[in-house]
Each structure stands twice: as C-alpha cells, then as structure tokens.
C-alpha cells in the first residue's frame, strides 16, 4: 500500500464506531490527531499489519526496544499546541491529557541522529557562594550517571562560578539529554545558582577551528 496522508478532513470519513485504524504507511498529521482527540475518536495502531521492528525505536541508551524517550510526547504536544495557538491566537495548550498526540513514535532517522549525538555536555553554574552549592550540582550530575571529566571552579568575593564538562555516554539507561538538563538545571536553581546545560558541540563549533 502506498503512503497515505491522513488529514483532519479524513478522520471523520475513516472513523468506524469512534475508532480510526492506522495501518502501516499511513501518515497521520498532527492536526488530524488533535482533531481526533477533540472529537473523542481513538487512533488504533496495527490491525492486520502490526508495526515491524523498525517501526519501534530503540531506546538510545539501553538499546532495548520500546517506547521512545519519555520526553518526546511532551515535545510533540508542545509543538502541536504552538502551531495551533498560532491559528487560534490563544497561547494555551490545547492538547488534552490522553490525546493520541502524546503517543507518537520517533521516525527511524530521528532515532539514528540521537544515537550519534556527541556525548559531552557542558554545565555552567553561577550565583552567590554558599556551602554545598558545588556538591548539589555535581551530585545532580552523578545521580543521572553522567561522568565529570573536567571542572573549573572559582570564587570571586562572594560569587561562585563553576564549569563542568561531563561525559553523557554513561548516562543512566532511558535518561534523555532533556531530562538530564532539566534535573541539573533545577538542582542548581534550588540552591540559588543560575545553571545552564548544553551540548559541547556548539562550543567546539564556535571556539575551535
């Protein structure tokens, strides 16, 4: 069967008893998913053609087959709601909990790109000095399984600043870069240090010829 793009308009026509069966080769657009969820139409995957192994992305870290990294549905949701808010003028999230949009799967190419990501991140933290600030941030890093490869830390009068280069290859299985970033940044904020986490590749691009 050739690829078929299923749009908002098609959902109604395809629905049987409130269910649309999505078979291989069908591409359901984000707007169609949103429409379906608003109308209470369920999207059911599989039917006669259960997704083959290459349809189910591997977990980037453990290599195990299974659902995509946990942050992805949130990302998709955000993207779609951003697109929709452009349409309606309201900035509110319009994807309800349990929407099929939250159920998306990564395309293979996206997964491949993730696997090839450069494996180092840079953590920058700055704020007023206080006991435990370095410990709070470094333990957030090690709690995620990341390995600190390089530290530069200084105190100027009362100000604390620290730069870490961490190896992400040892990150705990199932933990995405996004989750790592969120955890370390919030650990820093909790102890009063502005913290930013980003991939090392951008530093290499900008500062190394």
């Amino acid at each position: 069967m050739s690829k078929k793009v299923v749009t908002e308009a098609d959902i109604e026509a395809l629905a049987r008893d409130g269910v649309v069966e999505v078979v291989r080769g069908m591409i359901v657009t984000p707007l169609a998913r949103e429409y379906a969820s608003r109308r209470g139409i369920r999207l059911v995957y599989g039917g006669g053609s259960v997704p083959s192994s290459e349809d189910i992305p591997r977990d980037p870290h453990s290599g195990a087959k299974g659902p995509a990294a946990p942050d992805l549905p949130a990302l998709v949701t955000e993207e779609v709601s951003r697109a929709l808010s452009g349409l309606t003028g309201s900035g509110e999230r319009s994807i309800p909990e349990g929407s099929p949009v939250r159920d998306d799967r990564l395309p293979a190419a996206l997964q491949e790109a993730r696997d090839q990501e450069p494996a180092r991140a840079v953590v920058v933290a700055a704020g007023m000095n206080r006991p435990g600030v370095a410990a709070a941030i470094t333990s957030a890093v090690s709690d995620c399984g990341a390995d600190i490869q390089d530290i530069s830390q200084t105190i100027v009068s009362d100000f604390f600043s620290m730069i870490l280069v961490v190896n992400l290859a040892t990150l705990h299985a199932g933990l995405s870069f996004r989750t790592f970033k969120d955890r370390v940044e919030s650990a820093g904020r909790d102890i009063g240090a502005e913290t930013a986490v980003f991939h090392e590749a951008i530093l290499r691009a900008m500062h190394r010829v």
Binding site: V5, A83, L110, R178, A196, V197, H199
Partner: peptide
C-alpha cells in the same frame, strides 16, 4: 502539494525543537 509537504515536513518542527534543546540556541 498537500501530501508532499505534509509528508516531507512533518518532522521539521519536532527536529528543530530537539536541536534547540540540545544547544540552548
């Protein structure tokens, strides 16, 4: 026009958001 754009560009926003997140740019 519709099928081609929706097929080829469907992951554009998602991919851009991921890269944005990675580098903070």
């Amino acid at each position: 026009v519709f099928d081609r754009v929706t097929t080829l560009a469907r992951n554009l926003s998602l991919a851009a958001a991921e890269v944005e997140e990675m580098f903070g740019v």
